[in-house]
Amino acid sequence: MHPDRQLEFLKRVKILDALSQVSLEDLAKTCRWHTYKRGEEILGYRDPSNNVFFLVSGRVRAIIHSARGKAIILRDLRTGDIFGEISAIDGSPRSASIEALEAATVATLTSSQFENLLLKEPSVAMATLRHIAGELRRLSQRVLEFSTLVVQNRIQAELLRLAADAGRDGAQPLLSPAPSLSDIANRVSTHREAVSREVSRLTSIGLLRREGRNLRVTDIGRLEKLVRDIKGE
């Protein structure tokens, strides 16, 4: 890959936002680059490797499979995200598998290279801390939801989370492409039929709208209030 292209890719990574041009150029030379095909596994659950991955193009999914083969979707990652940092920091095996949802290009650092980057660049260290704090908050919310909410309400909370991840389009975020009913079910530990019923209900009351392969949240404010009310916030 041409160095200019590598530099352009690294500028997409959120935790590297504050790096100077020179620092980005040095980092691009240090990274190893690889493109994965759709459906290809990038990391395996309990894998002993400890590289850090900057996702510079495409989408990937963090997922765990139970002993019976049931998929548990943790979250989807998009261009600009980072993964693998926990194992790089604590040296433990991978806590989830990472699979490419589409062609995905990553830039990787070894754990020692990542540690050197954090020590050399305080802005990256602080951005990494904020990133990890955000992931802990997200995990805490999901634990609370699984412990206190019935399936219908967990589906509503997950749709709100997906809308937030997709970014705002005014008051009507667009999930593009729309997650499948099975994907949503795997995120909230239920079955496809329960998700189908709730999505149909939310559509009938004007909170969701199908747009081809996409799903529009037609009133994010109402959905946010609905989720806040069921959580007692």
Results as ranks from 00 to 15, higher is better:
residue 132 I to W: 06
residue 25 E to I: 05
residue 169 D to K: 07
residue 127 A to T: 10
residue 142 R to S: 02
residue 119 L to I: 10
residue 10 L to I: 09
residue 3 P to V: 12
residue 75 R to C: 04
residue 195 V to Q: 04
residue 80 G to L: 02
residue 7 L to D: 12
residue 93 P to R: 13
residue 34 H to T: 05
residue 88 A to D: 04
residue 201 R to E: 09
residue 120 K to L: 13
residue 214 N to H: 15
residue 113 Q to N: 06
residue 206 G to Y: 15
residue 209 R to D: 08
residue 143 V to W: 12
residue 226 L to I: 12
residue 50 N to L: 15
residue 202 L to D: 00
residue 102 E to V: 02
residue 128 T to N: 03
residue 96 A to T: 14
residue 202 L to S: 05
residue 226 L to H: 14
residue 185 A to H: 08
residue 14 K to I: 15
residue 137 R to T: 07
residue 191 H to W: 14
residue 154 R to H: 04
residue 36 Y to G: 06
residue 146 F to W: 09
residue 89 I to L: 15
residue 175 L to W: 02
residue 82 I to R: 07
residue 231 K to V: 04
residue 112 S to Y: 12
residue 142 R to N: 01
residue 232 G to A: 10
residue 53 F to Q: 00
residue 176 S to G: 02
residue 188 V to A: 14
residue 202 L to G: 02
residue 226 L to M: 02
residue 111 S to E: 10
residue 31 C to K: 10
residue 173 P to L: 01
residue 175 L to G: 05
residue 149 L to A: 01
residue 128 T to Y: 01
residue 70 K to T: 13
residue 24 L to D: 06
residue 35 T to M: 01
residue 209 R to V: 13
residue 45 Y to S: 02
residue 13 V to W: 14
residue 22 V to I: 06
residue 11 K to I: 12
residue 102 E to C: 10
residue 200 S to V: 11
residue 65 H to W: 04
residue 208 L to D: 03
residue 136 L to G: 00
residue 164 A to G: 09
residue 133 A to G: 04
residue 160 L to W: 08
residue 176 S to A: 03
residue 185 A to S: 01
residue 196 S to R: 05
residue 121 E to D: 06
residue 73 I to M: 02
residue 32 R to Y: 10
residue 217 V to S: 03
residue 53 F to Y: 14
residue 18 A to T: 08
residue 139 L to D: 06
residue 63 I to N: 09
residue 69 G to T: 08
residue 134 G to F: 06
residue 71 A to N: 09
residue 147 S to I: 06
residue 103 A to F: 05
residue 22 V to K: 13
residue 91 G to W: 09
residue 142 R to P: 00
residue 127 A to Q: 00
residue 105 T to G: 00
residue 114 F to P: 13
residue 116 N to I: 12
residue 134 G to T: 10
residue 204 S to A: 05
residue 85 E to C: 05
residue 216 R to H: 01
residue 94 R to V: 00
residue 114 F to A: 05
residue 190 T to V: 14
residue 65 H to Q: 14
residue 89 I to M: 12
residue 94 R to E: 00
residue 76 D to T: 11
residue 215 L to C: 01
residue 69 G to V: 00
residue 136 L to N: 09
residue 106 V to N: 09
residue 212 G to Y: 08
